[in-house]
Amino acid sequence: MTTVDQAKAMAKRLRAALAARDLAVPHATALELVAAGLGHDDWNTACAALDRIGEDEPRFLETVPILRIFDEAKAREFYGGFLGFTSGFEHRFEPGLPLYMEVARAGLRLHLSEHHGDASPGSTVFVPMTGIHAFHRELTDKRYGYARPGIERAPWGDVLEVADPFGNRLRFCERRAG
């Protein structure tokens, strides 16, 4: 997400580029143009909406849940075969030791771990998404023997929940406008 400081720098570059073409605009006008380019009505609205984290401050980029698994083959069948995730990295300290792996699909990354101390079985992960009805059709069409999830209408959106073979739940939600 663009920060206020980045937007100000964009306005400064815009003014310089316009000045190089003999088009002088006040700094306030450049700020308004940048705000419009970022999809905001005006600079004040942009300032309220833009991220205020500075370049040197900590920034949390994403959350990657770690889910406990007990059986590699079942995990691959469920997350790969049923949910359509692809495997990313895999790590074992040495052959025969517990697996730690990443699976990903459409911007969602999960870490799956056989390590006892990494996570508790029975966790729930809330996953905001779009296209939940198409995802539901995809899962239903697979006729997976251990899960036939439905979609529930909640006040905050349509929810599709699946439980993995290890008791973890993935709660996919397409939020409704308003």
Rank of each mutant, 00 (worst) to 15 (best):
M1S: 14
P65D: 06
P128M: 01
R153C: 05
K12C: 06
L110R: 00
A46E: 00
G107S: 08
P58D: 07
F166K: 05
L50N: 04
A20P: 03
P65F: 02
H27E: 15
R13I: 10
V162D: 04
G84W: 02
C47H: 03
T86M: 09
F60D: 07
I53R: 15
R76T: 10
E62F: 11
R15N: 09
T63A: 15
H136A: 14
H91Y: 15
I69W: 00
H116S: 11
A7F: 07
M1W: 10
A24S: 14
R171P: 02
D71C: 10
I66A: 07
V4H: 02
F60R: 09
I66C: 13
A75T: 01
E174W: 05
I66T: 12
G80L: 06
I69P: 00
D42G: 11
L31E: 08
G39N: 01
R15W: 04
R92G: 08
G96L: 01
Y79V: 00
G54L: 11
R21C: 12
A7K: 03
L67S: 03
R21S: 13
L112G: 03
P149N: 10
A73F: 06
V25I: 15
L23C: 14
A73M: 11
P155H: 05
I151P: 05
D5S: 13
A46D: 00
I53F: 08
G107F: 09
D71A: 09
F89H: 10
L170W: 01
G80A: 04
G88H: 00
R105C: 09
Q6E: 15
A147G: 03
I66K: 06
P128A: 04
G145H: 00
A28P: 06
A119C: 09
G131L: 13
L160S: 00
G178T: 11
W156T: 15
L50A: 00
A106F: 01
A11I: 01
K12D: 11
V34S: 02
A36C: 11
A147S: 13
R143N: 13
D158N: 12
A48H: 15
R175D: 07
L108T: 10
F126Y: 15
Y79E: 02
V34F: 01
L31F: 05
R171T: 04
L31G: 00
R52F: 03
L38C: 08
R15H: 09
E62Y: 10
K142Y: 08
R175L: 11
V4W: 04
M10S: 13
E94Y: 08
K74Q: 14
Y79N: 04
T63E: 04
C173R: 06
T3P: 04
A119P: 02
L108Y: 04
Y79A: 02
T29D: 08
R13W: 11
G131Y: 08
L23W: 12
F78A: 02
P95D: 02
M10I: 06
K8T: 07
F135E: 08
V4E: 09
T130Y: 08
H111Q: 14
T86F: 07
R76G: 04
M10L: 14
D164Q: 11
